[in-house]
Write a protein that binds this DNA or RNA. Structure first.
Lengths: 139, 139
DNA sequence: GTAGGATCTAGAGCGCACTCTAAGGCAAAC
DNA sequence: GTTTGCCTTAGAGTGCGCTCTAGATCCTAC
């Protein structure tokens, strides 16, 4: 038996107790949380694992509504694997697109960092061919 | 001369005219926008370029407040390259962390997609060693 | 017995980034 | 001359994801 209080789950997951209750209200838990004496929530390891998945999906930009939808499919049991796949694949596409965006941004930043480092003499030389950027013009 | 109306800039950047005015109010423009007849905004290519930078920074999760700060440094002219570098490097760290998160999420999704494809017989075989995931348990 | 600390519920509040509304100005087309 | 369409302003509204408050209950320690 591994009954965890909401406080313990908060500590383990990094979510606040407020957020844990909020996620539950929002239907993000795969199973209804057990209740112990005095009506206190009692979580088990499966709950923590599932929350870990939710956290990862959130961190990658999946809206709560989509996580809820996925959770509902899981809760409904076998027979809807096609829909689950659809949700996952859609999200994967979005994550890949997001990653591409980040890479483009990294290129831009690296370019600008290079310009400033050159200007500050932090690098060996100031390349004559450095493209003229917005920042080179006084405001 | 290349005077662009707010509508044209909206079309080019993909931002709405509302958002363009909003960004201006928020101090995200490197130069004050010129005004033409009847007080209409007149943008030039530099403005569009700068907006492109802002869009990229936003897309990678930089808050408007940070973009404003960076814009203010640029607007102030030469002499604050160190601060600009600091802003950029800080953001780069955040982008890298974000990319790492996305990669972790991709791992998770790929793993789950594999499980479902196997279950659906979309792949050659169902591996016996497939880890038991939350979803394998009925709700 | 009482103080402290964790928990409970229902519901209000907040921060961010837009997004839209209302009321009006100007200019070209019909 | 009036309709159409793009522009202006100030300010209100929206959606999301939390985050917090109030007031109550319960358990443990002193």
């Amino acid at each position: 038996m591994s009954g965890l209080s909401i406080g313990q789950v908060a500590e383990r997951t990094g979510l606040s107790v407020h957020t844990l209750r909020f996620y539950e209200r929002e239907g993000l838990l795969a199973q209804p949380v057990r209740r112990g004496a005095a009506g206190h929530r009692v979580y088990d390891e499966d709950d923590v694992d599932w929350l870990g998945v939710c956290i990862r999906l959130r961190a990658s930009g999946m809206p709560l509504a989509d996580i809820r939808r996925y959770t509902e499919l899981v809760r409904a049991g076998q027979g809807n694997e096609v829909e689950r796949l659809e949700v996952l694949r859609e999200h994967r596409e979005r994550v890949l697109a997001q990653r591409h965006e980040l890479d483009e941004c990294l290129k831009l930043i690296t370019h600008k960092v290079g310009i400033y480092e050159s200007r500050l003499g932090l690098r060996g030389h100031v390349p004559d061919c450095a493209p003229l950027s917005q920042e080179t013009k006084p405001g």
